[in-house]
Simulated scan of single mutants.
Amino acid sequence: MFQSAKKLENLFNTEAAFYKLQTHGKIHLCRSLAAVRRKGAEIEEEPDALFVLLNPGRCLPVDGEETISMLTGEVEVLPMLQATPDNTMYQLMRLMERMGWNHIEIINLTDVLTGKFEDYLECQEWMKLHHDNRHSIFSIDRYPELLERVEKAGVVIAGWGTKSKIASAAEEANTILWEIAEVKGLRYRQHPLYYHPFPWLQTRCVMWLDDMEEQLKRVGEVV
């Protein structure tokens, strides 16, 4: 089954924490956390899963980008705003339906929203050049925030993609995560890369769902 976006929006709510980050004169739009909750579920319910992806997608505040403020304090205290789901979030909702989950959270290797992979690489170089790591929950200053997200989640699932140029960032994140939790996900042949949840083609999306569901339920049976 491959539910439509319209049907999924009737089942789930999406919210996220956004901020603008200024680094040496450049302003970047960022998202530190996204959450998907089943409508009617308990608000206080802890996440069934924490997904760790590469960078935020097209999920933006329902009320528009003008509602996003410049970062002046700590990232972890940002308010959660109603947000519009993107294709990746719809895909994760489909997995939630298969698993019977009510609540998931999503973090990324970088908080910066970039539309193209080339933009992602350029942004990361800019941040490194100006020694600004505030955009990454995997930076040492944001470790308590990462630890809280991981410890609350029922399972941690990596899906940051298979591009070799992210291997260094993926290795760093993978090492940190494995120190505090077991990491699930569909492994690519190059360690520590993991297949992204939304590979665009519907047939491949269904394959990811099938394989991820099988892995998660197999783990559940062992426990």
Rank of each mutant, 00 (worst) to 15 (best):
D141W: 08
A173Y: 06
A16H: 03
N174Q: 05
R38P: 01
H135W: 08
R38F: 02
A41G: 05
N13S: 11
F117V: 11
P79A: 03
S4K: 08
M96N: 03
E42V: 12
G185M: 02
R204Y: 07
L29W: 00
S139F: 06
T175W: 10
S69M: 09
G220V: 00
A5Y: 05
L53N: 11
V52M: 08
F51R: 09
Q91A: 08
P47W: 09
Q215I: 05
A173L: 04
M207D: 14
V222E: 06
E179H: 12
G40P: 04
P192E: 01
D210L: 08
V75T: 07
R187H: 12
Y143V: 11
E214H: 11
Q190I: 11
W208I: 08
G159T: 05
A41L: 03
E213R: 07
M1K: 14
W208D: 00
T67K: 10
V52E: 08
Q82W: 09
D141F: 10
L29R: 13
I166V: 15
E65H: 09
A173Q: 06
M89W: 05
L29G: 01
R134P: 01
F12P: 01
L129C: 06
V150G: 06
T84S: 13
N13V: 01
R204M: 02
E151G: 10
E214T: 12
N174K: 05
E221M: 02
E118L: 09
G185P: 03
V222N: 01
E45R: 15
D48W: 07
M89Y: 05
N174T: 07
E148F: 07
D132A: 08
A34W: 01
K6A: 14
V219S: 08
G100V: 11
D132M: 03
K184D: 15
M212I: 08
E221N: 00
S4Q: 05
P61Q: 07
M80A: 04
E97Y: 01
I176D: 06
F12R: 01
P61G: 08
L146V: 09
G57I: 04
L71A: 04
Q124I: 13
E9R: 10
N108W: 02
E151M: 14
M89T: 12
M1E: 09
